[in-house]
Design a protein around this nucleic acid. Structure first.
Lengths: 112, 112, 112, 112
DNA sequence: TTTT
DNA sequence: TTTT
């Protein structure tokens, strides 16, 4: 768990219910997207909110907990690592995806 | 600098010299890619090294420092935030890129 | 803001209302203590909760926000740096205190 | 390893060789102090360096690695958690100590 | 008690 | 494309 070389921490809201995938070998994977919001005032003094969406992946015991505890709208704090993946889409174009493999998470906020 | 909502920390090596871009409005941007290496032993006891490549972006004063201090091969610690960007490539395909906008960096290691 | 060399992140609950101190030079300082709780099961399968208390210090604009927004019981996420201080107590014994100087905080949870 | 609730990250230099203590129950503990240095310019433009000393504690396998790899002067990155401890000193005065229990460390810099 |  |  090389947390000193590659570590991400986010606090944000889930945009969807967790998507669960179970493999033959009783491995479990959960995917969910999380939005982080950043607010600032622009030149005209208007409040602007930038939203960034992040692809989260949970494995095994962490996936089981995510499946049981998390749902759309929840405010969640996570610690994980950045990972890249690539695949070929339906049009035959190679696509690159950056994901966050979650090591630990925490439900925060009122929604729970 | 909403570091509690969106924060990445990496320690790794630069795969290239910094690419510098200066805009009309005396703004400066630097791009560089950084590799984080994770080692583990597989089922057969062989040592495996996984490398993940990260796209780093530096702006303004941080960009100036990066241009002056960093070069290919350097070991660097960074703190930044995740950001997404999209563009249309030469074939007209919409591409999504995940980048790390660097707030602070530190040269570590012997190469300095 | 040398966040790469010295950085603390905590999520916990405030044990008291913020204590505000204003100096001549319109500087403001706020102190508050925060508890982090860690749960685990002991050898007998009993759930044990360890609580650690942390001394937080806020300065100036961050202090103003802390004074306005925080109160006893709130769940709060903070980012800061470790600092040491010493003083001589009433019995003339030199005392050392470790504190966290807060750079940024976030109210999380329902209590707000 | 509740790294979301209580996490410290430091990059600094060791002020001493590791002190190793082995217990009956083949448990191992290592203590070492680490200095973090912060530089800034004061009102007169003089460069000031503030040093903060941190008490690090390593247990078991991490302690074994620290004993083997670390020595006085080394530049080290660590991730750990804050913990408090108290004891009665020789004069019968109750003393409180704040320590960092290290989860993971990385030798950085040239000394290795 | 470290380091730059 | 880096490094150990």
């Amino acid at each position: 768990m090389n947390t000193l070389r590659n570590s991400v921490r986010l606090v944000g809201n889930l945009g969807m219910d967790p998507e669960v995938k179970t493999f033959d070998s009783n491995k479990k994977m959960v995917r969910v997207s999380l939005a982080t919001n950043e607010s600032y005032k622009n030149d005209k003094g208007e409040k602007i909110t930038d939203t960034t969406w992040h692809n989260l992946v949970f494995w095994n015991t962490t996936a089981k907990l995510a499946e049981d505890l998390l749902k759309k709208g929840d405010e969640v704090a996570i610690e994980g690592k950045l990972a890249n993946r690539n695949y070929v889409d339906k049009e035959g174009v190679k696509r690159y995806v950056s994901e966050i493999v979650v090591n630990d998470f925490l439900k925060v906020g009122a929604k729970g």
